[in-house]
């Protein structure tokens, strides 16, 4: 028996070494199995809790009809546009506030004040100003992404040892070069943390906004499914959210972190 288990184990290890992605799928297998068993046992009515097979089938048909790809694209483009502006505004603002005492005195209270008015709290007034459209959605996402990025950038800038500034200065670096050579890379690990938080919040804000003002997108898909009572599509939407986040995190954010902060020994692996 022990030998048998060991055999299976070594088999798994070898499989994992050949296809590392299997390792990240494995934890989901028991979850899916449990879900499948619960639905097969008919503990809840089928209409309330459909099984994995039905969700897969609904995935197939929605892809076939072209609805899912279109909605997915809409959601991702909105997130990308919002995130882009969040970063483009957030990083310079964070660096300014981090470097300049005067900017900090002037802007810090404002930052805290507006951070407190959560993204969704802006929706009512944004809908009045911009209507039910892309502008409203983008503003909400920018708003959501920008605060974690700014606050973490400030933290990162201020955590750079003064000796690094001094070293760069006495090697002849101008203020502009120091920005590029010292401040930005020094703050990068914190900026990435801010970005990760920002994206996470932004992703949630996107879904919430699509539910309220959207005419397309994954959030809209789920809300629409509720109206027609299709639990399958709601579940599908939830699963897609999880998978997409997983992909963004493990294919984009984690590799950047590995190549920067971890490589430089600024963050522990």
């Amino acid at each position: 028996m022990k030998q048998f288990l060991l055999n299976i184990w070594s088999h798994c290890v070898r499989l994992n070494a050949r296809w590392p992605s299997i390792g990240s799928i494995a934890p989901f297998i028991p979850v899916i199995a449990a879900w499948w068993i619960v639905t097969e046992l008919q503990i809840f009515p089928r209409a309330f809790l459909p099984g994995p097979a039905e969700v897969v089938r609904s995935f197939g048909s929605l892809v076939y009809m072209g609805i899912l790809p279109a909605y997915l694209q809409d959601s991702l483009v909105r997130l990308a546009v919002g995130t882009f502006w969040g970063i483009a505004l957030g990083i310079p603002l964070g660096i300014l506030v981090g470097l300049s005492q005067r900017a900090r005195t002037a802007l810090w209270p404002l930052l805290l004040f507006f951070q407190a008015i959560g993204d969704i709290a802006w929706l009512p007034i944004l809908v009045i100003w911009f209507g039910y459209g892309l502008t409203t959605i983008t503003v909400v996402i920018v708003y959501t992404v920008i605060f974690p990025v700014v606050l973490n950038t400030v933290l990162g800038v201020r955590s750079i040892p003064i000796t690094l500034h001094r070293a760069a200065q006495s090697l002849g670096a101008s203020r502009i070069r120091i920005l590029w050579e010292v401040v930005l890379p020094g703050a990068l690990p914190n900026i990435l943390t801010g970005l990760r938080n920002g994206l996470g919040y932004g992703w949630r804000a996107l879904i919430a906004t699509e539910i309220i003002v959207g005419t397309s997108g994954i959030g809209f898909l789920m809300f629409d499914a509720r109206r027609s009572g299709s639990v399958v599509e709601i579940l599908l939407g939830m699963i897609i959210l999880g998978i997409l986040w997983y992909i963004v995190d493990s294919w984009i954010l984690a590799p950047i972190e590995r190549a920067t902060g971890q490589r430089w020994g600024l963050v522990t692996r």
Partner: peptide, 19 residues
């Protein structure tokens, strides 16, 4: 008048650029 490349500095904490 201020820091400059005419005076090179070696720091006790090394102060190498980690990146």
């Amino acid at each position: 008048k201020g820091p400059g490349p005419d005076r090179g500095v070696v720091f006790q904490s090394f102060a190498l650029f980690p990146w």
